[in-house]
Simulated scan of single mutants.
Amino acid sequence: MSHIRKAVFPVAGLGTRFLPATKSVPKEMLPLIDRPLIQYAIDEARAAGIEEFIFVTAAGKGALEDYFDTAEMLETRLAALDKHDLLARLEQTRLGEGALTILRQDKPRGLGHAVRVARKAVGDEPFAVLLPDDVIRAGRPALAQVIAAHAETGGHMVATMEVAKPDVSKYGVLAVQSTTGRLSRASGMVEKPRPEVAPSREAVVGRYILAPSIFDRLAMIAPGAGGELQLTDAINADAASVPVHGYAFEGTRYDCGSQAGFVAATIAYAMDRPELAASVHDELARWNRPAALAG
């Protein structure tokens, strides 16, 4: 069994880059092939041994809770039609009794504030944080990789990937002290540094394992960049007493909080599906032809 039992999912964001679709549909419910983004995050967490799922949400996000509830009328109808394959798909959306906790963030105050809201639900144990916008396609679930590494180090750990130097200003970046294989020891993190002063090219991806001491730090720090409570600031404030590591996971991360990243993820996951791969390949080939580009 995993030593990490609980995971926090900050899902209170407005999803403005996907308006008008997100006017009525939470961005975490946008479908990537035939599953919403939140399902990919939940499946990754379950495969890593997570038992309790804590959503930090906001007004207008009721569809997230409904999605993981029982759809009695639909299931009855499918059963009457002997649609057992479709009923099996719905099983993926079920969480164990009492496994889902819904908390409300009154207004967007940053990732740090969303994590702080979960303090009572998490309690005094290390826990995971997953950002559903970051979809990671990997043979072994990325969170499982990070949890396994954390079992050896303790403290705070973040998933990382190496990015090109001009791109470091888009990410939180580790201040790396030493590296052994995929594991890096860090003195802290720098949020969106200018390329010329970035301490490394190890960018933080939306998978965290945090020690419970992070809650005390989040209660003490002042708002940071953008007037929001930054999780990066709390990790840095804790770095003197709690070790901070990064783990360069094996896999490909797609930023599904952006339109381009969402399209790229859709293509990648479609190519993984035998019933879709051939037609998607043919369509991409058609658009690669000069005639198609010309008109």
Rank of each mutant, 00 (worst) to 15 (best):
K61D: 02
R273T: 09
C256T: 15
D34G: 11
V56C: 04
H113A: 15
T232P: 00
G188V: 03
A99R: 02
E275Q: 14
I42S: 03
R104G: 05
G188N: 07
L183Y: 04
V135C: 07
G98K: 04
V56H: 03
D69Y: 00
H245K: 06
P132G: 03
A128L: 04
A151Y: 00
G49N: 06
I235N: 00
A278P: 09
A88E: 12
F262T: 06
I50T: 09
I235V: 12
A203S: 10
Y171W: 10
R273H: 10
A198K: 10
G49I: 00
I54V: 14
E275V: 11
Q230N: 14
A128W: 01
A186Y: 07
F249Q: 00
E51G: 06
V205E: 11
R77A: 13
V8T: 03
N236H: 06
G172C: 04
T153R: 11
A88N: 10
A164V: 15
D82Q: 13
A164D: 09
A240Q: 13
V205W: 12
G172P: 02
S24T: 15
T57A: 05
R253Y: 08
F215Q: 04
S241R: 15
T16M: 06
S169L: 10
L183V: 10
R46M: 09
A211C: 06
D255S: 05
K61Y: 05
L95I: 11
Q230A: 12
E228M: 08
Q259T: 13
A12W: 09
H156K: 02
H281E: 15
Q177S: 08
G123P: 05
Q177G: 02
G224P: 03
S200R: 01
G172L: 00
Q92H: 11
G110N: 08
L87S: 06
R137I: 15
V146I: 12
V129N: 05
R201V: 11
A80H: 07
M220G: 10
F9T: 00
G295S: 11
E72N: 07
L86C: 07
R182F: 04
L276E: 07
A291R: 08
E162N: 12
K23L: 11
A219M: 09
F215R: 04
Q39M: 15
A248R: 13
H150Q: 09
I147R: 00
D124Q: 12
R46F: 10
K120T: 09
L218Y: 01
A237V: 00
S258Y: 08
R182M: 03
A294T: 06
T57F: 00
P26L: 13
E28R: 01
E52C: 06
Y40F: 14
A79G: 07
G49F: 03
V117N: 04
R137Q: 13
A149M: 05
A58M: 10
H113Y: 12
A58V: 00
P195G: 01
S187K: 09
A285C: 10
M29E: 05
A12R: 12
R137F: 05
Y171G: 05
G257H: 03
T266A: 13
E52H: 15
M271W: 05
